[in-house]
């Protein structure tokens, strides 16, 4: 494992921890899109179908379990927790997210590396992850006022994607036969979606003012 991959995994892990911290200690999910969280839970569920059949390393297995467990517990918190669910801005989170799944599924059926159930589900998870952040970005745009933890959460998620691209570039030059168009194209699209957010995040950081997106 190279340093970019590790940095990517660690920023991904940190993003989840920041979100859990916000939900668990402040008992608030204000500004967080349940739609995006549900999509992430589906992404991990369909990607890690090989959790118990394809062993790679202890590290991989533990990380997979953390991402599965955290994504489902976040959804549970927002939907079911007595206090947390009251802070959920339902009216701002109106994205028809399940409609995003159909094009991803159809695309995965036609464009994949191998036509098996596991492989199609894995490819579906790659496509779905690329656009799963959209409901959250739409919600940010609407609420505009973004608290620190929500801002950091999205920043860390974007950083995770950026590090993964550096990881792919590194692996491309250091490993033989390392060409994965599906993952790369989906990954680059996913990272570009954060571009706008990054711009305003750095502006607010540079000028030391509260993060606010333009209407």
């Amino acid at each position: 494992m190279n340093i970019f991959r590790l940095a990517g995994d660690m920023t991904h892990l940190a993003s989840v921890l920041v979100l859990l911290l916000k939900i668990h200690t402040i008992k608030s999910c204000a500004g967080i899109s349940l739609k995006t969280q549900e999509l992430f839970a589906i992404v991990f569920l369909t990607r890690y179908l090989d959790l118990f059949t394809n062993f790679i390393s202890i590290y991989n297995t533990i990380m997979k379990l953390i991402f599965l467990g955290s994504s489902f517990s976040i959804v549970w918190y927002i939907r079911r927790h007595r206090v947390v669910r009251r802070s959920y801005d339902k009216d701002q989170d109106t994205f028809r997210h399940f409609f995003l799944m159909w094009p991803c599924l159809i695309l995965a059926i036609f464009i994949n590396e191998k036509f098996t159930l596991k492989e199609v589900m894995w490819t579906f998870s790659i496509y779905l992850e690329a656009i799963a952040i959209l409901p959250q970005l739409v919600m940010l745009q609407r609420t505009r006022n973004i608290d620190n933890l929500t801002g950091q959460y999205i920043f860390l998620l974007g950083a995770y994607r950026a590090f993964y691209i550096l990881n792919w570039i590194y692996r491309y030059f250091t490993e033989e036969h390392y060409v994965h168009w599906i993952t790369w194209v989906a990954g680059v699209i996913q990272t570009l979606l954060y571009g706008d957010f990054f711009y305003y995040y750095f502006q607010s950081w540079k000028n030391n003012v509260k993060l606010e997106l333009p209407a």
Partner: peptide, 10 residues
């Protein structure tokens, strides 16, 4: 095989 290599990523 080649198709399996990315499965070592998360």
């Amino acid at each position: 095989d080649d198709a399996e290599t990315l499965k070592d990523e998360l």
